[in-house]
Design a protein around this nucleic acid. Sequence first.
DNA 1: AGGTACTGTGGGAGCGCTCCCACAAGTGAT
DNA 2: ATCACTTGTGGGAGCGCTCCCACAGTACCT
Lengths: 351, 351
Amino acid sequence: MASHGVRGRSGGRPTLEEVAARAGVGRGTVSRVINGSPRVSDATRAAVEAAVAELGYVPNTAARALAANRTDAIALVVPEPETRFFAEPYFSDMLRGVGAELADTEMQLLLIFAGNDRERQRLAEYLAAHRVDGVLLVSVHADDPLPELLSQLEIPAVVSGPRSATETLTSVDSDNYGGARAAVEHLLARGRTRIAHITGRLDVYGARRRVDGYRDALRAAGHEVDELLIESGDFTEDGGRKAMTALLARRPGLDAVFAGSDVTAAGARQVLRESGLRIPEDVSLVGYDDSAIARHMDPPLTSVRQPIDNMGRAMIDLLLTEISDRRPPGLGRGERRHAVLPTELVVRASS
Amino acid sequence: MASHGVRGRSGGRPTLEEVAARAGVGRGTVSRVINGSPRVSDATRAAVEAAVAELGYVPNTAARALAANRTDAIALVVPEPETRFFAEPYFSDMLRGVGAELADTEMQLLLIFAGNDRERQRLAEYLAAHRVDGVLLVSVHADDPLPELLSQLEIPAVVSGPRSATETLTSVDSDNYGGARAAVEHLLARGRTRIAHITGRLDVYGARRRVDGYRDALRAAGHEVDELLIESGDFTEDGGRKAMTALLARRPGLDAVFAGSDVTAAGARQVLRESGLRIPEDVSLVGYDDSAIARHMDPPLTSVRQPIDNMGRAMIDLLLTEISDRRPPGLGRGERRHAVLPTELVVRASS
DNA sequence: AGGTACTGTGGGAGCGCTCCCACAAGTGAT
DNA sequence: ATCACTTGTGGGAGCGCTCCCACAGTACCT
């Protein structure tokens, strides 16, 4: 779209020097204009911009990266197999938020999968070569060595997830505790008292926080926590079915279920139906994630919505400040930040 | 994993020169070892490799890119909104094939969405800056300016899709014509004669080729083509429903339907059922893509399988040769290639 | 008048590589 | 012994930028 560019005599792309010659200024001045330095007079700036347009000049990224020691690229690292990446809306929501926030930046986003050992090895080399200015790490597991590697290499990074798992890195999380608590309080307000919880995978810290929220909501309302009403799931539909079956066997009188994810809730729903229990008349059901599945369930599922795209945005914000903070060498890179974004309970017919 | 690397006195990463000093050789020799040149004696190579390991040397990508005028990166350009990217298994299959073929390469893959004007503008700048050595273009639409831009910029590129839409670029396609033909011949062999076709979006060239295959299969078997048995769809489920409804109204006696995609077939199936028609007893149904939906349909859907991951592999192959062909400047970059990969009919209970 | 400060500008140095020419040393034919 | 190659090696030049120092010009104080 831009360039009808007169090619330099050598046939290649025009360089800074050629632009400078054309505009009748020095190389440094052109560089200043290109990089938006304020220390350029208006007249000079106009002349340079004209020359840039005439020649169709585009900066050489490699040269810039070499001289300035930065890449203008950040990596979104997904420590999961690709299949899960495509299957879970979490990632696409995240990607959307990240992309939107990055849109008016020069930064480029690289998507990197690190789902198996081979890919992780590649990633390690990649990071060692400092091919990105910063890293966004989504969905970190409990014993993941990646955060450690990143802080060792002193690469700015932001993880999605709770602080504790990754003490060394800046992180962004949604309020799992508050979300769970809100869900349970909602059920209590509906008059339910025998509220079961099917957890997520407990090696995921967020899932544990939800359990905490569940417990505290009950206690705060003056109820004792019945451990037999808690059954662990794994975020899958099948896990939801198994957990629900177990719960019904142990506590046939339960009157509500708070599931660790919508998919889990779908599994639970199926078992409830097969047991002849009506939703919400006999048992209220609440999910987590507010995914498409929640809206389309029969009955539509009450669910806790996480602001995942906003999390993506927040991660970029934090990462960019962290990157620019670090440019002036050393000098107390600020203490690690930790942002927690609020969740929202979306009430539908299932509760 | 690799480096306990002794840091250079300056605190930064070790350079070629430092490796050379450590190994007691010249800079050029180290470069040769790193790049796997054969013109190095075994003893020297061993010494250099030892020094590399001791120092934890990792080449500086930017410097290499600047000096050698290449980036070691290729872009996978998806000219679609992200939502479609996640929704259609086509892309994830493609990505899997591409990733696998690239795994034992130094090349890095960038995923770039160009679904709206803004993103396309960004992409254009990106390409103008020659930030990648080559481009993989998936799902090109009829009047897309991207292929033109790519050949103007002389950036090696491979498109997925038919030759004609993109005369200037190397392309890889699956045999839409043959796949459709096989599907129809299968239906004929089952004794069906009044075979309807719900097409895909006809601005997608592959969809048109399927129509050609449909027609030719019928003619080759000595049947006339009844134009009223052809109804255009748009690859969606809803499109399939509408098309099926129209077809039943016009030709209530049809005994088979060949749908342009599995999703379309799902829509058609629904309408057939509602009309009291049994599958396959009354009407045989065949889809296209052999996606998950085909396997899980009731009854399981006969479908034409496209080797999409192999297409991804083939695209990378062609692109890499094209890139290396071009390195020696100019000199008749070979005529455009066009690969067509065979499809496979997967027969299930619906036909 | 001299100082001090700031603004705008030019251009040297250098980022860490690759490319290639020069050259030493070895090999074999004449 | 001479020449002609081949093999392995060192290191200069240069890729296109950014950074920064130097300096001319202007402005505003003493």
